[in-house]
C-alpha cells in the first residue's frame, strides 16, 4: 500500500480534509453497502480531531467491515477473525499516544471475538470499538449471526434461527464500558457526531452502528430507520434533555416504578437523559427497547469517566521507578545472593 501524498510534512500540520484520509485502494464492498456511508463519515470526521494521520491506527478483524483499514490513509492492521481488540490492546499499551479504532462486526466482535470485546471494554482501554451490526454473515455469503432475530431464515438456518440474539449495547453496558453509543448508516450527521464523541472519549468507547447489508439482509433496520418513519420510531438520546420522540417531539418516556411508559411530552415525569449516570438502570432499560414495542434509542447511552488501563499501567511504572529507582540490569542479573570463586 503506497502512501498517496508523501510531500505533506507533518510539522506544517495543515488542516487535513476528507480526501487526505482516503487511501489509494479501491473500495470493494458491494454497491449499496452501508459500509460506504460509515467510511465516508469517518473520513469526513477525522480532520475535526486535529490529529496527524500517522498517529491514527485502524485495527480490524475479519468480515466485510474489517476491510475498513485498507481504505483509510492512516496506519492499519487487518488482523484475524475476532482478535482485533487484542492487537489493539498491545499496540495501545506499547504506544499510548496513538489514536486507535477497532472496526469489527456482529460476527467478528460478538461471536468468535466476544471474549476479547468484553475484556477490552471492562479494562477501559483507551480505544474506540466500532461494531458494524448488519445481523448477518456477509463475507461468507449469508449465514445467521449472533445478532440475527429468532426465526431468521438464512442458508444455515433454512427453518429459521433458533438462537436468541445478543444485544450489543447490553453486552457493552454489562462489561462496564465507559462510553456506549448507537448510531446508523443512513443518518450521516448523527453518525459523524457519534464517531467524534467516541474518539474524544478517554477510555473504552463502544459504538454499535446499524449497517444495512443490501445483499444478504436488506432492509433489516428499515422499519425504524427509513427517513419517513424515523421521527416516530427512533428515540434520539441527548444528554441533559428530556427523552422525547415523535415527528414533533410530542411524546416522551417516563418510569412507573422500574417499568418504562410512553407519555405526552409535557408530562412532568419525562426522564432527563443523563449518560453520566454510573448506575446501570436506565441505560439497561434503554438497551432493551425494540421496535415495534418501543422507540429504538440512538445516541450515547452511557459516558462516565474512569482511569484507563494504559494510564494506570503507566502510573505503576512511574511509581515503581520513583520508589525503587530506574532498573539496574547488573543488579537484576546478580539477584539477591551471589558468591565468588577465585
Amino acid at each position: 500500500m503506497v502512501v498517496t501524498d508523501r510531500d505533506v510534512s507533518a510539522d506544517e500540520a495543515p488542516r487535513l480534509s476528507k480526501k487526505d484520509f482516503a487511501s489509494d485502494q479501491d473500495t470493494r464492498w458491494c454497491p449499496g453497502c452501508g459500509d460506504y456511508s460509515i467510511l465516508s463519515q469517518m473520513q469526513r470526521m477525522l480532520p475535526n480531531l486535529g490529529r496527524k494521520r500517522e498517529d491514527i491506527v485502524f485495527v480490524s478483524g475479519i468480515g466485510c467491515s474489517s476491510r475498513f483499514p485498507y481504505y483509510m490513509n492512516t496506519y492499519g492492521f487487518h488482523t484475524i477473525h475476532g482478535r482485533a481488540p487484542t492487537l489493539a490492546t498491545g499496540l495501545k499499551l506499547a504506544r499510548p499516544e496513538l489514536l486507535i479504532f477497532v472496526v469489527t462486526g456482529d460476527g467478528d466482535g460478538l461471536s468468535i471475538g466476544g471474549n476479547h470485546l468484553l475484556h477490552a471494554l471492562r479494562r477501559n482501554l483507551d480505544i474506540n470499538i466500532l461494531l458494524f451490526n448488519n445481523r448477518i454473515y456477509g463475507l461468507t455469503k449469508g449465514q445467521y449471526s449472533p445478532t440475527s432475530e429468532v426465526g431468521k431464515v438464512t442458508k444455515s438456518s433454512p427453518m429459521g434461527s433458533i438462537e436468541n440474539p445478543l444485544n450489543p449495547i447490553a453486552v457493552a453496558l454489562t462489561a462496564e464500558a465507559t462510553f456506549v453509543a448507537r448510531t446508523f448508516d443512513t443518518d450521516p450527521v448523527h453518525l459523524s457526531a457519534t464517531l467524534e464523541a467516541a474518539a474524544h472519549h478517554k477510555g473504552a468507547s463502544f459504538v454499535e452502528i446499524y449497517q444495512n447489508c443490501n445483499i444478504f439482509n436488506d432492509g433489516t433496520f428499515r422499519d425504524f430507520t427509513d427517513k419517513p418513519v424515523r421521527g416516530e420510531r427512533l428515540l434520539y438520546l441527548e444528554p441533559g434533555k428530556p427523552m422525547l420522540f415523535g415527528d414533533d417531539h410530542q411524546r416522551g418516556l417516563a418510569l412507573s416504578g422500574a417499568t418504562p411508559r410512553i407519555v405526552q411530552a409535557d408530562d412532568q415525569d419525562v426522564i432527563i437523559h443523563n449518560p453520566a449516570e454510573d448506575a446501570p438502570t436506565v441505560g439497561n432499560m434503554l438497551a432493551r427497547f425494540q421496535y415495534p414495542d418501543m422507540p429504538v434509542p440512538m445516541g450515547i447511552f452511557r459516558q462516565v469517566h474512569k482511569p484507563s488501563y494504559g494510564d494506570m499501567l503507566g502510573q505503576q511504572i512511574t511509581d515503581a521507578t520513583e520508589q525503587r529507582g530506574p532498573g539496574d540490569l547488573a543488579a537484576l542479573i546478580a539477584g539477591d545472593n551471589t558468591w565468588h570463586v577465585d
Binding site: R83, T86, L87, G90, L91, R95
Partner: peptide
Amino acid sequence: FQAEDEIAAVGAAIGAAFGGS
C-alpha cells in the same frame, strides 16, 4: 499484560511489535 486468554496474549504481543516494541 495478563490477557483474558492465550489468543489475546499473543495478539497483544503482535500489536506491541507492530508498534515497535
